[in-house]
Design a protein around this nucleic acid. Structure first.
Lengths: 224, 224
DNA sequence: TTCTTTCCTGAACAAGTGTTCAGTTCTTCT
DNA sequence: AGAAGAACTGAACACTTGTTCAGGAAAGAA
């Protein structure tokens, strides 16, 4: 006798898998990575704890997939914003401020994804996540350099530094707590973007203009 | 009957306490924060596990003190380097590159002190540690702004971003692994310092000069 | 319907570590 | 030297969570 999964079953299995991942994401967004524990996640996803292990070999795998998923979303947003920009410098500005807005709008998730202590080893996944974003930003810096807008430099290093600056300033333990005031938020995003652009060598005057152009269109995302 | 601690005993107690802290520091430097476990630290300090608890109420307290100690050392080094500089911009450059050299020369320790996952809560101590260094850098930026060398800005935010950039680029998971080549190290420290100076608004040409001045004197520290 | 395969459940298990404490050793005072 | 307080030891304890697995439910084949 051969058992074959019905269409319906395949769909249900996929749905369950998504539900578990979604539950993990919710938990992370609400309480940080420490809240992503098998039992609570299972409850949230309406399954038993053991069931989680039919979809993910271990907690590390679950979290790794979560990181990959969130990272993919962010990368998509960054690419879209940058591609819509008129030139290489604008693209860089757009990329940077998109990252800024994203991490600001989902602080706990962002912090959990990339730096919060986790009891299992998700280093590989975190490195991959960083590498994607850093690579994207590095290629935007590269483009600006090739266009003659920026001095030659180690773009990989610069992109890494930029990411670190954004995260520390916006989601790190010393980041301002107030999420409430949109104007304040815009100011912070602008300030950080300005720092980033100047860091890679954009002239101050030009940078200010680029920042305004880049931040205005995305600021509505903060509330999302 | 009243028991009073003899001078000798007081000294021995203090020595033990230091020995435990030193053992913790060694463990952290060698294997990161995860290696700072009560039993191994006790062995290293030549005491029993229970004895640790006569000096530190909990592991969290032990690690908190460790963080404070390392942080104090770093702050001292940064202050000294900056104070020895001829002007506010040089002082800023010196401060930044000193931090860079420090974290590079003790990567595991640096990573452990400020970001590595720990099973106990040392958030408060880490925040305090960051705050000290950020405050120092912020005040140096402030001085440069007051001297008219830099544009007005949110110096606290800028200092936070700078620290994040340094750490991510130098000790983060994407940082280059090679500690061996001193020339390479110097290049990285210079590159990162340059990024930092430009970020806060130092003109590129001037920044390059400041970087060379600041990095040359401290590069010997890397081997320490 | 009945049998087989897959899926799900949730209580029990396992493992790593911080913490405790009764017994021992060392130090101080008379 | 002897009594009493303080310090030290290290094995046992406690607690948290990820993981397993025997039993039961559901789905597909005959």
């Amino acid at each position: 006798m051969v058992y074959r999964r019905t269409h319906q079953v395949v769909k249900r299995l996929a749905a369950r898998r998504s539900a578990i991942l979604a539950a993990a994401r919710e938990a992370a967004a609400e309480g940080g990575m420490s809240a992503v524990q098998i039992a609570p996640v299972a409850v949230r996803a309406n399954v038993a704890a053991g069931t989680v292990y039919r979809y993910f070999p271990s907690k590390a795998d679950l979290i790794s997939e979560l990181i990959a998923e969130v990272s993919r979303d962010e990368l998509t947003a960054v690419r879209r914003a940058a591609d819509a920009a008129p030139g290489p410098s604008s693209a860089l500005a757009a990329a940077v401020s998109t990252v800024a807005v994203h991490v600001l709008s989902q602080r706990k998730l962002a912090w959990g994804i990339l730096a919060e202590p986790v009891d299992v080893d998700v280093t590989a996944s975190r490195i991959a996540s960083r590498r994607e974003i850093v690579g994207e930003i590095a290629s935007r810096i590269d483009a600006a350099v090739r266009a003659g807008h920026l001095p030659a430099q180690d773009t990989q290093l610069a992109a890494t530094a930029l990411l670190g600056a954004l995260h520390e300033a916006l989601v790190g333990p010393l980041a301002t707590d107030t999420l409430d005031d949109p104007a304040k938020l815009r100011d912070i995003v602008q300030a950080v973007t300005l720092l980033a652009l100047r860091a890679v060598g954009v002239m101050d005057a030009r940078a200010r203009g680029l920042v305004v152009q880049a931040v205005l269109p995305v600021k509505s995302l903060v509330g999302a």
